[in-house]
Amino acid sequence: MSIKVLHSGLLTTVQDIGRYGYQKYGVIVSGAMDSYSLRLANILVGNKENEATLEITIYGTTLQFEEDMLIAITGGDFLTTIDGTIAPLWRPVLVKKNSILKFHSAIKGSRAYIAFAGGIDIPQMMESKSTYIRASIGGFQGRALQKGDKLNIGVKSTLSEALLQHLDDKNIPWSVNFNELINFKQEPIIRVLEGTEFDRFDKESQQTFFQEPYTLTVQSDRMGYRLEGPSLSLSEKFELLSEGVTFGTIQIPPSGQPIILMADRQTTGGYPKFGQVISADLPSLAQLQPSSTIRFKEVSLKEAETVLLKNEQFIHNLKTAIHYKLFH
């Protein structure tokens, strides 16, 4: 079973939930920018939720299926068609042999995920299939997909087989209310916790950041989001030794313009950390289109955890519901 790449698009890479356990060696985590969309795509085709998918960026990717295949497309809405007909998103779909799937252009969001029942059959590198382009490891030959590449698909789980049997069952309402998890609005409010060096910034910076809008510049990528807006400054200059950072860390380099660390971030950093985007809002941040405006809101650690636990419960319930409907 395989898939042929007819057009690579802007940037299409194999990504799973990420490469964990190797940050102490300086190996970056990588993985899906929008982990909720990745997990839901996998759940909808009966895969393990951390299985590898394709992450498609903004537009242009075109794939051809060499066999009948069960897939699910989640994340941004890229005006996706199967043989010219609009493809349904956020539900399992059976695509026929030789059909062509095309992601035209982003109407909403900036990253789409496509999961294949059986997963992508490529070797794991350091316990993950995620692509780490700079080190040329993981994913498909350690690089982004190119025209002519062929991806092999793995063996379907019993859950995937059961899903396939029930696809046409009108009693099963195949839909996921993804709005519960991801905010696709144009000017989202991103919730932020105080960073470890928040107190080192002057009063004005501490207030301005939460009052004024920031723009996502076009120099943003999977490694980091560079923002443009009011400059943030320290009360007095100080030197910081390098230490661990994480997904969503808001660093302030000497320019005063914030950088938010994303999926392909370095493992350590030496810039002062002004804030930290809450985990539950990282997928919404990942879906922002370049030049979008963002507003930030300060929340407490307790609030951040409450939202995160609510979202995890939502995903857990969805898994249970699919299982129940298929086997009862």
Binding site: Y20, G21, Q23, K24, G244, L309
Partner: peptide, 29 residues
């Protein structure tokens, strides 16, 4: 999940959902 040792500190990464469901108590993860 994992840890990253640095010059004078260690960053410890964890899954708050698992911490919460595996340990009783109302406090934060």
């Amino acid at each position: 999940i994992e840890l990253v040792p640095a010059y004078n500190n260690i960053t410890v990464y964890y899954n708050p959902y698992i911490v919460h469901t595996s340990q009783l108590g109302a406090s934060t993860a």
